[in-house]
Design a protein around this nucleic acid. Structure first.
Lengths: 287, 287
DNA sequence: AATCAAGGACGAAAATAATTTACATGACCT
DNA sequence: AGGTCATGTAAATTATTTTCGTCCTTGATT
């Protein structure tokens, strides 16, 4: 879907002229997006037909289709394409963060599988109890968000970031309960163990993680997020946005599935919250 | 920047033919983005020159520039333009969530003030202790994220979601400490009180919130996020993405300010985390 | 009320520009 | 030597813009 990402993968299969075109696309996407085929060709020192062929190779039918796809992939900036460069200015940092978040959300969206999603939603909506598991700063935040979203819908839900607790909760869970596990890396072996234990007790397990990983394999159903994390340790991982988005999608679908009951619970929560604020109740479930 | 938003504002000043074009842009952006000027014109039952004039009126120099801008504004979908519609299908829900998140991030990015940001970053980087305050599901998540990001940089940081604690911590804080407060609505009066108390003790206070609100006014420095929350109570608020983005930007800038020390702390944390996983240490600070 | 500019919206057709196709060349490999 | 592939040139096609003339609307004048 993201043409620049596609291009990066194809880099090796390109001829010399085509690599020169690609070079320009990466280094100056802003120019490329606004250029005509002639301008782009002359800047890359190739002929226009070579550009056309280049577009075809990337799966576009025409140069203009290519340009549209290019424009779509460069929402804010393209700095994420040069992960080696350390961004220094405030402006660059902001642009990079926003762009990466957008990219992560986009990748998550592209990887969605409606069938899986619906199965997961059905299980959650019908669960007698939901457990949200995730450890480490990021996944425990996600587990917390799962709790935040689902309790508002009137579901019984408990979040845990503690491996020991997770194992015990899994063992204590009963058929009809659902465990939702979050792992960015998929390599959280204790979490995988808890899921395996839950399986023995016929508890449904849903994992938000990468498929081909210990956690992914241990779960009954995987809502896949296949984004690698990058290596810039100074930067917070953008994968969080993808996970958050997945949680929001699942929670919203569950809400729609439950419909009336959920609205009532939400109304009650809101009433309580608003009562302890000043009078303006236009705000949704604020903070 | 967003041409579809611009267009919505201009709607009244358009002639009949132009409104017919706009109509198509809103109802079938996907078609418009891929269409030639002739196709678009014939579908709107106008002549190509009218389309060209339409583009000019919207500030584009040519039809192709217009198409690029259009492609850039329709990252995933345009459903947010009709906020009243309740989305029902899985596909629609996913599209809506992703689009809203993107929009929120974009709005946050647009509202950034470099000067303020740099002042905040300087204060945080030099703080002897940082307190992150935020209550309610959403803001306490943000406070948690502030802690997650900053402790990795070697800063001393404590997060609290409890109003009573916040007040006490504010009273116990000393000059040189910094409090970062998060409030989506800005109407969290207890939080505002804690900030006011901190001020008396000459503790720097930074708020991520809306400017013209009790919390915004109580803080020394506001990193503004002026997004209203929408009223669909079934949907999680997209403002979270904006807040998260702001936290990431601030944290990254602080990291760059601290530079060497931070990398070392991160390396140590990572070493510990990796040691308790299996051997693959390519993963960043995973879960 | 009828008439008459003035101005704007619009489309037809011409002019221009962009893009693609068809074909030719030359480099490289077998 | 022959084939294949990458590439360019030039022609053909297609897309876009410009120019110009018509028609409608509006508002003033008779």
């Amino acid at each position: 879907m993201d043409i620049l990402a596609t291009l990066q993968g194809e880099m090796d299969n390109l001829s010399r002229s085509e690599q020169r075109i690609a070079e320009i696309l990466f280094s100056d996407t802003g120019f490329a997006v606004n250029a005509s085929i002639i301008e782009l060709a002359s800047r890359a020192e190739v002929s226009p037909p070579t550009v056309t062929r280049f577009c075809r190779r990337l799966g576009c039918q025409s140069f203009s289709e290519f340009k549209v796809r290019l424009a779509q992939s460069t929402f804010v900036g393209t700095r994420y394409l040069q992960p080696e460069t350390v961004s220094l200015s405030t402006r660059e940092v902001a642009e990079t963060i926003v762009t990466r978040a957008q990219t992560a959300l986009y990748a998550m969206h592209g990887g969605l599988d409606e069938g899986l999603l619906e199965r997961a939603v059905t299980q959650i909506a019908n669960a007698s109890m939901v457990y949200a598991f995730g450890s480490g700063g990021n996944s425990s935040m996600i587990a917390g968000e799962i709790r935040n979203r689902l309790f508002r819908l009137g579901l019984r839900v408990s979040a845990s970031a503690d491996h020991g607790m997770q194992l015990m909760l899994a063992a204590a869970a009963r058929p009809g309960d659902v465990i939702i596990a979050s792992s960015f890396s998929g390599r959280n072996l204790e979490l995988a163990r808890a899921l395996t234990a839950a399986r023995d007790y016929k508890v449904q397990t849903i994992a938000i993680t990468r498929r081909e990983t210990p956690v992914g394999q241990a779960a009954d159903l995987v809502l896949p997020i296949e984004i690698s994390e990058g290596t810039d340790i100074l930067q917070p991982t953008s994968v969080r946005y993808a996970f958050l988005g997945m949680v929001d999608i699942v929670a919203t679908l569950v809400a729609l599935r439950l419909e009336t009951g959920a609205s009532e619970t939400l109304r009650r929560i809101k009433h309580q919250v608003v009562a302890s604020r000043d009078k303006d109740d236009r705000e949704a479930l604020g903070d």
